[in-house]
């Protein structure tokens, strides 16, 4: 393998990894606050992409306006989802909420099949995202450069919100203890709605980026990325935002490299993610960046 080809593989891996990272942040944030694995995250991601698609093709809006509308509507959808599927179960055992999340995921998928139809749709791409650049023998599409930048910005903003704002302080408090936060005068419900809204914004951004890179929309498009990003979040240490980014990069690079070095194994690249999950759960269940929590009795 020549050096420039290796570089090309590296670039491919980083661009796929940053996409996984972007989605994994949303997963991990909701888990960090609520201790709830939002299985419908992948479907919110799908919905965001479809909204952007219809805004561009049916309403003929310019791409940037479509993206903003898609992000706003997806955010509202995330809040509604939380209100209808999760809030009624706030005081139920955690397993009920998880089943509700799975139910919501199936509901959204099947509604999407009915409403959008099963045939794939082509996501329109503005020329600014599809320019092909050639840097020292390494080919790269402009969207692949934009995605890591957006991931970095999202990471920075999220870090700022969680660690340096009042809402963030409330979020951290809620993640420790619902009851105590409520006693301290924090409006727990609105903090949770805010968390879901932010998670859905991240899902919508991730979905739009995904659409720009892989311009093919199907109602089940959120399924596999959703699972993989959940794995990325677990690998990085679920609940830890920086860990999710690292997990995303490990997954993306790993998938590309396994195909690059062993074409015969290329049919098993999805298995890589799951094998990684099993290894992490065996060796370090709290994930790479996760802290071991001491259960207080």
């Amino acid at each position: 393998m020549s050096f420039s080809i290796f570089l090309q593989h590296l670039v491919n891996g980083i661009s796929l990894g940053s996409l996984y990272a972007l989605l994994a942040i949303g997963y991990t944030m909701v888990y960090g606050i609520l201790r709830l694995i939002n299985f419908a995250h992948g479907d919110v991601f799908m919905l965001g992409t479809y909204i952007a698609f219809y805004a561009m093709t049916s309403f003929f809006l310019p791409w940037w306006m479509s993206f903003l509308i898609a992000i706003a509507l997806t955010c509202i959808f995330g809040i509604i989802l939380e209100r209808s599927a999760y809030r009624p179960l706030r005081n139920s055992p955690r397993i009920s909420v998880m089943i509700s999340a799975i139910g919501a995921s199936f509901l959204i998928q099947n509604l999407a099949i009915v409403i959008f139809g099963g045939r794939p749709k082509a996501f329109p791409i503005a020329p600014i995202f599809s320019r092909i650049l050639n840097i020292g023998g390494v080919s790269i599409v402009s969207v692949s450069l934009i995605i890591p930048v957006i991931t970095a910005i999202a990471l920075y903003i999220l870090n700022y919100i969680v660690n340096h704002t009042k809402v963030g302080m409330a979020m951290r408090a809620v993640s420790r203890d619902y009851e105590a936060s409520r006693l301290m005068g924090i409006d727990v419900n609105s903090i949770i709605s805010f968390t879901f809204g932010t998670g859905s914004v991240l899902a919508a951004i991730g979905g739009i980026m995904w659409g720009l890179k892989y311009p093919q929309l199907i109602p089940l498009m959120g399924l596999m990325p959703g699972l993989k990003c959940f794995i990325a979040a677990v690998v990085g240490g679920i609940g830890n935002i920086r860990g999710a980014v690292i997990g995303g990069f490990i997954l993306g690079l790993g998938e590309i490299m396994i195909v690059a070095f062993s074409p015969a194994l290329s049919g098993y690249r999805d298995a890589f993610a799951f094998v990684l999950l099993i290894i992490i759960l065996l060796v370090k269940p709290s994930g790479l960046m996760g802290q071991n929590t001491v259960e207080k009795v």
Binding site: M1, N12, M224, V259, P263, A264, G267, R269
Partner: peptide, 22 residues
């Protein structure tokens, strides 16, 4: 000279294609 696979539903083929390049 080169043979690689993918699964139904895969969306990223950059690794396979990059290897084909050389």
């Amino acid at each position: 000279v080169y043979e690689a696979f993918y699964n139904t539903g895969d969306q990223d083929f950059t690794a396979q294609l990059t290897s084909i390049k050389e």
